[in-house]
Design a protein around this nucleic acid. Structure first.
Length: 424
RNA sequence: GGAGCAGUGGCCGAGCGGUUUAAGGCGCACGCCUGGAAAGCGUGUUGGGCGCAAGCCCUCGCGGGUUCGAAUCCCGCCUGCUCCGCCA
């Protein structure tokens, strides 16, 4: 959400930001609405002021036993006028806030220009993709051969884009979630949180999934929504609050189910569990002062990378170009893990800096100790990591020629000491 | 699901149609007092918006309504609590 005052101060910069998203300039229209809105407010306030004074005089006159009819008539006239002014103001204000609510965030200056994911810029690589003296298989082939990954059973229960895991593979998924949460809380200072996964519309508006991306979400019959990521619940923890800047940054981690309709992804990644309607993810959210926002993104991407390093999985970090950047974000770093079965890097984490865009939408402010002025916080989020995709990466990287899968060293304590997952 | 009660400032709590520009208390900040502190005294203490400014407007859970005038009366919603029923 944009601040109309900021647009007023620098309309050219605002339009330039839209242009980087491939959008037409909007400042002229918005500022016109803004000017009309303010004129209506000023006039209405003058009428209110007069009405308040007259009403007090009426009270005094009646108490003194005098005739107040002339004043009562005046207030009646003001009331009619006020109703008109307020109706018109509401109309203009609604138009303005609706327009602002749909606009995407301004990309940071260093975000590369580009049309789509092919224009993303690689920042660094870590690790070397494992070499195999046999043809590495994809995770679904491995999982089905092990008898521990069942897409048919899931389809019978729920349809496509679901999976049933069993035995050691189910435990491996659980192990990954526990491991990630332990690292983020113990090593990186995130506070563990469990949240609802069903939320009201307001929460989704706050983080920016609504109104624009309703099609990507599941909605319940009682008008709640399933979260597509715990970014929604963790970031909204402080909605409508003023937090002391001393208490910032606040860092939260949650392991939750995430639900996505994948409406626009028909035909993509249809095999296996790369793209599911339901998956587990450890989400990392930070709330910071405006000054600390950008540096927090660098820190957070490191927190996500740490998981892959401990698991010994090769990855690269890319900066999303303007065409691939999510609407609510100023800058996003994707971490792409090497998938041995696909022989390519695939997204496993997305770490973003939203600036004050989400904070404005949810009215989340902070205040320096002892000062009166408030300002909007910065919010950040990142996966640390997507559990399902990490399971895939582990399976494919740690597979043996016989189809068994070695358990990575750091996960053994979580697997009851199991060394290797073999057919059950 | 049924029945009832309640939401007031950072917190507690009064007010239930007109000097309420929300009493009183606690907490907090500053000042006086003191060798220093406590106590005491005094002052301040929600958050927004409009305006070049002076200043004004809104804000008693949220949104409507009644009235010349609403924290106060009416309706809807949200939240919390109590009892009953059901349930992991």
């Amino acid at each position: 959400m944009f601040d109309i005052k900021a647009i007023r101060d620098n309309p050219a910069a605002f339009d330039a930001g839209l242009a980087r998203r491939g959008l037409e300039p909007r400042s002229a229209d918005l500022l016109d609405l803004d000017a009309r809105r303010r004129a209506l407010i000023t006039e209405a306030q003058e009428a209110q002021s007069r009405r308040n004074a007259a009403s007090k005089d009426i009270g005094r006159a009646k108490k003194a036993g005098e005739d107040a009819q002339a004043l009562i008539d005046e207030v009646a006239g003001l009331k009619t006028r006020l109703a008109e002014l307020e109706a018109e103001r509401d109309r203009v204000e609604t138009q303005l806030t609706e327009a602002l609510a749909w606009l995407p965030n301004t990309p940071a200056d260093d975000v590369p220009d580009g049309a789509d994911e092919n224009d993303n810029v690689e920042l660094r690589r870590w690790g070397t993709p494992a070499a195999f003296d046999f043809e590495p298989r994809e995770h679904f082939a491995l999982g089905e051969a092990l008898g521990q990954m069942d897409f048919e059973a899931a389809a019978a229960l729920s349809g496509s884009r679901f999976v049933v895991l069993k035995g050691a593979l189910a435990r491996l998924e659980r192990a990954l979630g526990q491991f990630m949460l332990d690292v983020q809380t113990a090593d990186h200072g995130y506070e563990e949180v469990t949240t609802p996964v069903l939320v009201r519309e307001d929460a989704l508006f706050g983080t920016g999934q609504l109104p624009k991306f309703a099609d990507d979400l599941f909605r319940t019959t009682d008008d709640r929504w399933l979260i597509p990521t715990a970014e929604v619940t963790l970031t909204n923890l402080h909605r409508e609050q003023i937090v002391e800047e001393e208490s910032l940054p606040r860092r939260y981690a949650a392991l939750t189910y995430c639900f996505r309709s994948e409406a626009g992804a028909a035909g993509r990644d249809t095999r296996g569990m790369i793209r599911q309607h339901q998956f587990n993810k450890v989400e990392l959210v930070s709330v910071t002062t405006p000054e600390a926002g950008e540096a927090e993104q660098e820190r957070k991407v490191g927190c996500a990378e740490a998981i892959l390093q401990k698991l010994g999985l090769a990855y690269r970090v890319v900066s999303l170009c303007t065409g691939d950047l999510g609407a609510t974000m100023r800058r996003t770093y994707d971490i792409e893990v090497w998938l041995a079965g696909q022989q390519r890097y695939r997204e496993i984490s997305s770490v973003s800096w939203a600036g004050d865009y989400q904070a404005r939408r949810m009215n989340l402010r902070c205040r320096p100790k002892g000062e009166r002025e408030t300002r909007f916080c910065h919010t950040l989020n990142g996966s640390g990591l997507a559990v399902g995709r990490t399971l895939i990466a582990v399976m494919e990287a740690y597979q043996a020629a016989d189809g068994s899968i070695a358990v990575p060293e750091v996960l053994k304590p979580y697997m009851g000491g199991l060394e290797r997952i073999a057919a059950s």
